[in-house]
């Protein structure tokens, strides 16, 4: 029961959905299932949120190092959750003013919108922006031509970097467009690297990945790979 049933479920639904590609009358099943997944994910939030709360409560009650930060996390979590779920400060939909709950939960001016725009957005985008710095440090540390592979990667990257600037292409402006040396113009070299070499490498990777996905999926559907089910 514990392992057999899930594997049977997996085989049946998986193969039915593969077949759906070829059987028009059941193609609409797929659309429903995608919606169901989102609903299950909401149920799963109970576990995720519960785990988050318990983890931090434990840190606080054990007075673990940095428990004060756990208090901050909990306050931020519960505060955001409350204003979001209760639609605090959300005006009703302008067409249905009598329906207090009809407004959009992210409506401009609401408390949840405030948290989103002034807490979440700056934190997320700044975190993302720190990548610019990490690129610089990785370039200094790791981009070293110490073998043929690394040298190829490096030379290609340098060429494309130059071509991605405004002045890069001007370096070879002295070569006329119609001369037989035109392929040596910076933008043409970049075009060749991007459109030819990048395409062929990416294609091979994609073909390989597609096969990897096919066989991993099959292993799951056939019950060959059961690691996601854990032990008994």
């Amino acid at each position: 029961m514990k392992r057999l049933v899930p594997i049977v479920i997996a085989s049946i639904v998986g193969f039915v959905l593969i077949l759906a590609k070829f059987i028009p009358p059941i193609q609409s099943w797929e659309e429903n299932v995608v919606l169901w997944f989102d609903i299950l994910a909401v149920f799963a939030f109970v576990l995720g949120g519960g785990n988050l709360i318990l983890n931090h409560l434990k840190k606080i009650s054990d007075r673990q190092a940095g428990w004060g930060f756990s208090v901050i996390t909990l306050v931020a979590f519960l505060g955001t959750l409350t204003v979001g779920l209760l639609k605090i400060g959300v005006p009703p939909n302008e067409k249905y003013l009598d329906y207090v709950w009809s407004g959009d939960y992210q409506a401009e001016g609401s408390a949840f919108w405030w948290v989103f725009s002034y807490v979440y957005v700056p934190l997320a985008s700044t975190m993302f922006a720190t990548l610019a710095f990490y690129i610089s440090s990785a370039a200094f540390r790791a981009f070293r031509a110490n073998n043929i592979e690394a040298s190829l990667l490096l030379m290609t990257a340098l060429l494309v970097l130059v071509a991605q600037t405004s002045s890069g292409p001007m370096l070879t402006d002295f070569i006329p467009d119609d001369s037989s040396y035109a392929i040596f113009k910076v933008e043409n070299i970049k075009g060749m690297l991007v459109n030819l070499f990048n395409t062929l490498g990416t294609r091979a990777i994609m073909i390989g990945i597609a096969l990897g996905v096919v066989s991993t999926s099959l292993k799951v559907l056939l019950g060959v790979d059961q690691s996601y089910l854990g032990g008994d």
Partner: peptide, 19 residues
Amino acid sequence: TRSLVMTTARETVEGAYTA
């Protein structure tokens, strides 16, 4: 980063430790 991944990973790791 996902609740569902957490539960699946727990099952898996528990299975591995048992194994």
